[in-house]
């Protein structure tokens, strides 16, 4: 399959989806596919909490879940529909910065967060609609430019954003959320759980989408734009929806990062961060939320362990993108699932 497939690519893979149709073929549905994904994710979050020995692990774990959430948005855009965005860090940063700036102007954190997410979605809607009528190349180029523009504003408007040095995020602490229900957690643990739960909800939503009428239309566009149109799918509108949804995922992830870290810099909106998100999706397998999780896990955890990663970050990321596309175009999760199935049969 390597390198010669004419139809396969970063595409609807096995895992999530195959299980989905099987469970439905049976006709009875005790537990929906979305709820099942949610429970699996929560179990994984809990597993982390069981084995983590220190706050440092919780902090890295939090980052893994935040990245998983952002990459799930890429999965919707790239894996479901087949569109590449090179500016998703821009939406991520909008979520982060509005959440950070809000409290400075007397807006409470949750409201600021909602505002940031809404702003990112609105921007995606306005920018996406005209561009998405055109070929896939245009979105990649336009988002590349949009991301740079956002990064530029964040770096230059120091009065608002603190400039290149970044800004401190004041506001809420997740500990208080847990105190309300009588649980006393350390701050790092509390954020870990919040990030994990939000990522689980995000994954459930993405899985629901895949098996729904709207999701089938998106996946149809991925495989054949022409056929989708012939079945009455308004392709430009469907693509625009996917783009907005994925921008919202990125913005929520950004807002969480701002709050959990307490500090943000314009690099959260930088080009390399956008590339990192796409690489995570491509590596794990852009077709499923499990691919998002695996990609985010590997590319978040590895740099903590391997210093070579920090020194050669660009070469590693770029190399992963090219090699994955040539050797296992659908990504790690489907690749391993295929190997597994072949061994079994």
């Amino acid at each position: 399959m390597a390198g010669q497939g004419t139809t396969t690519d970063v595409a609807p893979a096995g895992t999530g989806r195959r299980e989905y149709s099987k469970s439905e073929g049976a006709g009875r549905r005790r537990i929906g596919p979305g709820l099942r994904t949610f429970l699996i994710f929560v179990a994984l979050v809990a597993l982390g909490a069981l084995i983590f020995p220190s706050s440092y692990f919780y902090r890295v774990g939090t980052l893994v879940w935040i990245n998983t959430l952002a990459v799930t948005g890429i999965v919707v855009l790239l894996g479901y529909v087949g569109l590449v965005s090179l500016g998703h860090a821009g939406f991520f940063a909008i979520g982060a910065y509005v959440t950070a700036i809000g409290p400075n102007y007397g807006i409470p954190s949750p409201l600021a967060m909602a505002g940031g997410v809404a702003l990112a979605g609105l921007l995606a809607l306005i920018v996406g609609r005209p561009i998405l009528k055109l070929s896939g190349y245009y979105l990649a180029i336009a988002t590349l430019g949009l991301g740079m523009l956002i990064w530029m504003v964040l770096s230059k408007e120091a009065w608002l954003t603190g400039g290149p040095d970044g800004m401190v995020v004041s506001g809420m602490n997740a500990r208080n959320l847990f105190k309300m229900v009588g649980l006393s957690l350390k701050s790092a643990e509390a954020w870990y759980w919040v990030a994990g739960l939000v990522a689980a909800i995000g994954a459930a939503i993405a899985v629901n989408l895949a098996g729904s009428p709207s999701g089938r239309a998106l996946r149809a566009i991925h495989d054949s734009d022409v056929a989708a149109r012939s079945l009455g799918v308004d392709v430009a509108k469907a693509k625009s929806r996917a783009f907005v949804i994925s921008a919202i995922y990125a913005a929520v992830a950004g807002a969480l990062l701002a709050l959990a870290n307490g500090y943000i810099t314009p690099d959260t909106g930088g080009f390399m961060h956008s590339v990192e998100m796409v690489t995570m999706a491509v590596l794990g397998g852009a077709a499923s939320v499990y691919g998002a999780l695996v990609g985010a896990l590997i590319l978040t955890a590895l740099p903590q362990v391997l210093t070579v990663f920090a020194d050669y970050e660009h070469m590693v990321l770029g190399g992963i993108m090219v090699l994955t596309m040539i050797l296992m175009r659908r990504g790690l999760v489907p690749f391993i699932a295929d190997l597994w199935n072949r061994r079994k049969s």
């Binding site: 569109l83 070929s135 190349y137 993108m321």
Partner: peptide, 11 residues
Amino acid sequence: PLVTLIIITIG
């Protein structure tokens, strides 16, 4: 496909 080529040249 197009997506693959985009990702390869970006990579």
